[in-house]
Amino acid sequence: MEPVDRTAPAGETPEGAPEAVSTLTLRVNGTARTLTVDNRTTLLDALRDHLDLTGSKKGCDHGQCGACTVLLDGRRVNSCLLLAVVCAGASVTTVEGLSDGDRLHPVQEAFVARDALQCGYCTPGQICSAVALLHEAADGQPSYVTPPERSPDGPVSLTPEEIRERMSGNICRCGAYPNIVDAIEEAAR
């Protein structure tokens, strides 16, 4: 594995404006990481370019594909639209932090078993999203396809229709969706 680029000294920030740079601490996959970033640096770029956690992917850089999905304080978010500086003090879980040593997270295992991926580029985002989805449904959070008359209490049953709607923030151009839905159904059991 190659080291990361850390060639930009702080003095060379744009127009030498010191206030355009921030130092912050993130708790990433359980470890506190302190870094100094250009205020413009997104959480995604901070993870990828500063912490060498390249599992989170940049597909669109505008919150339109979900490849950058990570868990921020346990909630799934598009890390490409979050400035790193805004996340100071927060806990971030990336795809690299899901497995327990060599033991894959059940969602990861199900993705392997169901061939829920092809090129693999959207996969880390899909998996982070699916992990959050399981919590959201267990927590009773509704989706657009949850019947509105349903009582707000109790977990939502993850039908294929529910999974499809709840996974629609993660685009897969290879078209692995049916296998992704199968994998999440399996992991939900």
């Binding site: 919150g63 909630r75 598009n78 639209l81 509704p142 657009y144 949850t146 509105p148 923030g169």
Partner: peptide
């Protein structure tokens, strides 16, 4: 319910979380 549905009709779960 119109508000809940409108929110859920927008964007994606990740975006709605932010």
């Amino acid at each position: 319910p119109a508000l809940s549905q409108a929110l859920l009709a927008g964007a994606s779960p990740q975006l709605r979380n932010a």
